[in-house]
Design a protein around this nucleic acid. Sequence first.
DNA 1: TTGAAAGCGCTAACAA
DNA 2: TTGTTAGCGCTTTCAA
Lengths: 339, 339
Amino acid sequence: MTSSIKDVARVAGVSVATVSRALSGSTVVSPELTARIQAAIHETGYRPNLSARRLRSRDSGTIGLIVADIRNPFFTAVSRAVEDEAYRAGLRVILCNTDENPEKEAMYLNLMEEERVTGVIFAPTRQTADQLALQAWSFPLVLIDRVSARGGHDAVALDNAAASSMLVEHLHAQGYRRIAGVFGNASSSGAERHDGYVAAMFRLGLEPRSMFVPPQAQAAEQAALQWLAEAARPDALIASNGLLLMGLVRAVRQAGLALARDVAVAGFDNESWTEIVEPGLTVIAQPVDAIGRNAMMLLAARLKDPTLPARKLLLSGRCIARGSTARRVSPALPGSAAG
Amino acid sequence: MTSSIKDVARVAGVSVATVSRALSGSTVVSPELTARIQAAIHETGYRPNLSARRLRSRDSGTIGLIVADIRNPFFTAVSRAVEDEAYRAGLRVILCNTDENPEKEAMYLNLMEEERVTGVIFAPTRQTADQLALQAWSFPLVLIDRVSARGGHDAVALDNAAASSMLVEHLHAQGYRRIAGVFGNASSSGAERHDGYVAAMFRLGLEPRSMFVPPQAQAAEQAALQWLAEAARPDALIASNGLLLMGLVRAVRQAGLALARDVAVAGFDNESWTEIVEPGLTVIAQPVDAIGRNAMMLLAARLKDPTLPARKLLLSGRCIARGSTARRVSPALPGSAAG
DNA sequence: TTGAAAGCGCTAACAA
DNA sequence: TTGTTAGCGCTTTCAA
């Protein structure tokens, strides 16, 4: 059916070793034989068998990319960046979705062992992240987005706390004082964003008000609706990711309030809808390309020198101010701080 | 370093063949030996080497998924469905982005040959689709989204013409008559959606007005701005994909017109922003899950029987009516058909 | 510069 | 039921 290096050797009248050498270019093969081999490859329609090559050379040339769900726009963008870098480096990418399920995570890590992958880029749940250090992996591992508290692994993520603070400071500068926030309870990034929010609020002398919710728009919507029904309701709401942010927008509308005029809204993830909605939503844009590229970079560095100490790379977000946090003009609500 | 089946055999005091058999479960191995082998696997920390297994068994257990860009929400969703099905079937997925670049397409198809993949699911450019039949591939190939005019390959796609017609008929029923459309010029689906649009317009006695544009929001925006500046401007606009649809929305706003009241807008792809924008946008929702699942199904069927004739599967879209195409109430524009 | 030969880890005849 | 052995396609010694 498909022809092997043996067939090429036979047709070219050389040994398989010579064909292999001509193919790899590692050793010099005489021009004459090289030409004959080229012709034979053409004639036989030869294609290298990557499984055989891997078995022999003990290099899979493959990296695993394990994320919660590729449909999450953050992971979509990061995946694309990772793949671009991978193919530039001549590596294949195996994509895995875990749905935040620790069992699936374990299964895929196991699969990566069996694939003898060159490396793995992984966005773990909190639970798995904490146990990751307990096991010795046969491949270098770079964590993205969710960074293990225990450390010990290379990682690249948004500087979550700083980004949250940026959001709070922006709202404060625009005249908002009663700033409440919903945060995702599934990954460590939600907790870190919460920390940054609380820290910034304290720094500004404001009283934090927050809630951890499951990663569903509806959960954020419910939380926000309760807050908005209060007499001294918040004058600004923030969400720790795009999904929750959508819930906030729905809640504001359902409460019959106007974005910005009645209540400001801001959040994380510069998804396309945050720009097209009116008014546009103020968000923290994550450096998704840089996260993917740097994850590959850390992987490459570790492959080169496995003794390197673990490195944690925190990248800054960018605050994109839009209409949803326009300067507060209406009189301060009773009970709000003077600023 | 990592232990092989040989190590397990030695520790368990059996032959490698017995270990292999115990692992595969193909032949019955005595309970006693099975237990000893299990213990040895545990002790040695053995992991099967998939490259070796593939080389020997001539089954890669891997499928290739080649799309234009995973960041296109349509492909994101289809990919997820494909991966779900693949992992359910015990298959790995290698993901490739071509950026609609025929050279990249050729390179990835070539890579798939070298990987000896079990099958490939591919969304080709028009150009590549037309040449696909010229080459014999060593793997079964299922086309998605963009279906080769030449036929000859298994394929699954939206029934584009019918979906376009549905959109036109909806607009007509809502009282719109001067319906213009922008269509993507890169893939075959744009052309098919155009055909369906033109056919429906003729059927309803309306005059089609269309433009093929490159797949950029700005291109649609420019086209729409020109139309909207005319005296007898269209009273409805449609777009053949989510990106172009966003361009239309921008154009309407920039022209100082109101969605629905001044001009209706509708299009393809039920992306999250089409629901959250106000008014919500009427769209054709593609059966993304079904497209992915059916692609895997066709692949499985062909693997089982390679002699099967090529099958082309067309799936129906669903028209989701939202505010952007609310019933026309203002008086008909001068020159518009009476209906 | 080239060839012969060993062997990567595994599966599947074939024998026992 | 189990073991022996050949060999999947390739790379890489070691010799020539």
